[in-house]
Amino acid sequence: MLPSAELHLHLEGTLEPSTILELAERNRVRLPYADVDELAARYEFADLQAFLDLYYANMATLRTAQDFADMTDAYLTRAAAAGVVHAEVFVDPQAHTSRGVALSEVLDGVGTALAAAPSVHGISTGLIPCVLRDHSAADAMAMLDGVLRSGAPVLGLGLDSAEVGHPPSAFTEVFDRAGAEGLHRVAHAGEEGPPSYVWEALDLLGAERIDHGVRSLEDGDLVARLVRQRTPLTVCPLSNLRLRVVDDLAEHPLPEMMRRGLVVTVNSDDPAYFGGYLDDNMAALRGSCGIDDDAAEVLARNSVEAAFLDDARKRELLARIDAAVTGARPRN
């Protein structure tokens, strides 16, 4: 596995069944499943909403800053083993404050683990709080205000949750505010929602990256724009399979996206729910989609180029990819 950046990762989606049960016991949260096997049996999803129902229910086990720190550190440990050298991770503050957890608990816990990541795991990081698109724009603005007042070192603002029926255009003012505050902007679009959502994310939200974006291929003009502007798409193959965006990984559009010149990166999204971390996603692509060493190198380089990093750190990480590729070549 080549050194890579992970740019589409929901921290709450890294809660493994065993961790959920441990947190439930720690915080005296009663869950509707008795053991790991019963919980794991629920990890079959008909669509995005079916996943979100379980995803939000399991968040009830997260209560304290220590819970959020432990969750984040567990992800970083696994990510380092997967070859991740830089991670820009999502968190959903509204999903926690709406159930009575203070914003400070979320940001302090996650922030503590991320601050230690370079020394403990060898991973540089950035935090991107996300707007829940199935909540109101006023609620989103209140969340952003709270994040900004906290002084937490956040990298940007994202848009996630149930896509269909919740277009990016509803959150234009929130993302304008984020841009005015110097935050990067990214948005989930073109997963279950139509290509028009990708256009809105670009034109109305100022999105610098599109999370998922697999349905962009349905619109030739959109593809041409994404190629021309080199807008990165943070694609999550195993997520797409488990949420039935594709029925078979062999039919995943990623190879076609690469052939058409799109700047594609591979990510794990919610790995505890979708069957794999970054290395698992790459292994699955190699086995099902014909991704070879050359394509894997392109994907790794794309991930670093698409990261919100300064030029010096990008050069450092690209040099590590060069060294890994050179070391993997057979000697004559």
Rank of each mutant, 00 (worst) to 15 (best):
D160G: 05
A138S: 14
G151Y: 01
L157S: 00
V131R: 01
D160H: 04
L144D: 03
A152V: 11
D145S: 12
A152E: 11
M143E: 10
D160A: 14
M143Y: 07
L155P: 07
V131H: 02
S150I: 09
D145C: 07
R133I: 03
M141I: 12
M141N: 13
A137Q: 02
R133C: 01
L157F: 04
R133W: 06
D134M: 12
D134P: 03
V147C: 12
G156D: 04
S150Q: 05
G158Y: 05
S150F: 07
G156H: 02
L159G: 00
M141G: 12
A152R: 10
V154R: 08
S136V: 06
A138N: 12
V147P: 11
L159V: 01
L132W: 10
M141H: 13
G158H: 05
L148D: 07
H135L: 14
L159I: 03
L157H: 00
L148E: 05
A142T: 15
L144N: 01
S136N: 09
L155E: 08
S136H: 06
M143T: 13
D134L: 09
L155I: 11
L148W: 06
A152W: 08
V147S: 10
D160L: 02
P153H: 11
L159W: 03
G151C: 00
H135E: 12
R149Q: 14
G156E: 02
S150K: 09
R149N: 11
D139V: 14
R133Y: 06
A138T: 14
L155F: 11
L155A: 07
A138Q: 14
V154D: 08
R133M: 04
V154K: 06
M141K: 13
G156N: 03
V147R: 08
D134W: 13
P153Y: 12
A140R: 01
S136F: 05
H135S: 10
V131D: 02
A152H: 10
D134Q: 14
L159N: 00
S150P: 10
L148S: 08
D134H: 15
H135A: 06
G151E: 00
L159H: 00
A140Y: 02
A137N: 02
S136M: 06
G158P: 04
A152G: 13
L155V: 09
G151D: 02
L132P: 06
L132E: 14
A142N: 13
V154I: 15
L132R: 15
S136W: 09
L157T: 01
D139Y: 13
